[in-house]
Structure formats: structure tokens, C-alpha cells
């Protein structure tokens, strides 16, 4: 059984990241990708973060809980800020 690490992320949208589709980055695309079953075709040898819950605090900010199946993991993407671990 893998040890789980749970994190709370606060995402703040920036203008270039707010539109779906055409924009290279879309701030809500990742939870959609991981939450809609679109990645269920991945082989067993590849896993993705598990999104537990999400709360929209405003039009440009959302908080979400994520489980990583690897302790100590964190991405250095600048748009993210860890509020609590």
C-alpha cells in the first residue's frame, strides 16, 4: 500500500490561463483531466494525482485537495501556493 501525502493547493488564475480550449494552459484543465475518467486508459505503470475536493472561493481562485502517492513530492509551478500540508 502506498503512503499518501495530502496537500491543499490554492490556485489563482492569471488572465492567460483562464480560457479553456485555445489557451496552452488552462487553470482548471488538470482537475478535469484527472477527474473525468479521460486518463483511465493510462497503463497501470503510470499514475496521476487524485483530486479529493475543490472549492471555488472566487471567479479567479479555487482551493483543492490532492493526494499524491509519493511523500515529499511537489511541483515548482509558480502559480501554486501551498496553504497547508
Amino acid at each position: 500500500m502506498d503512503e499518501l501525502e495530502q496537500r491543499l493547493e490554492a490556485l489563482m488564475a492569471v488572465p492567460d490561463w483562464m480560457a479553456p480550449g485555445a489557451a496552452p494552459r488552462y487553470w482548471k484543465r488538470e482537475p478535469m483531466a484527472c477527474g473525468t475518467g479521460l486518463l483511465s486508459a493510462l497503463p497501470d505503470s503510470v499514475r496521476v494525482p487524485r483530486f479529493i475536493a475543490e472549492t471555488n472561493t472566487s471567479d479567479t481562485e479555487t482551493w483543492r485537495w490532492i493526494n499524491f502517492q509519493r511523500p515529499g513530492l511537489w511541483s515548482n509551478m509558480v502559480r501554486r501556493r501551498i496553504i497547508s500540508v
Binding site: R29, V48, S75
Partner: peptide, 27 residues
């Protein structure tokens, strides 16, 4: 096909029997 669009080492974490892939916002 369906692409991650940001596949490189900083977004891939090799474990004993699987790879964890993160940062899917460009998918």
C-alpha cells in the same frame, strides 16, 4: 492522439513499479 503536452523529468516521478505523472494543465 491525446497528449500530456508537458512531459519531462520535472513532471515525472519514477517509483518502484510505476511513474507518477503530474501537471496535466496543457493536456
Amino acid at each position: 492522439t491525446l497528449c500530456h503536452q508537458d512531459v519531462f523529468r520535472r513532471n515525472l516521478f519514477a517509483q518502484d513499479d510505476y511513474t507518477l505523472a503530474i501537471d496535466w494543465e496543457m493536456m
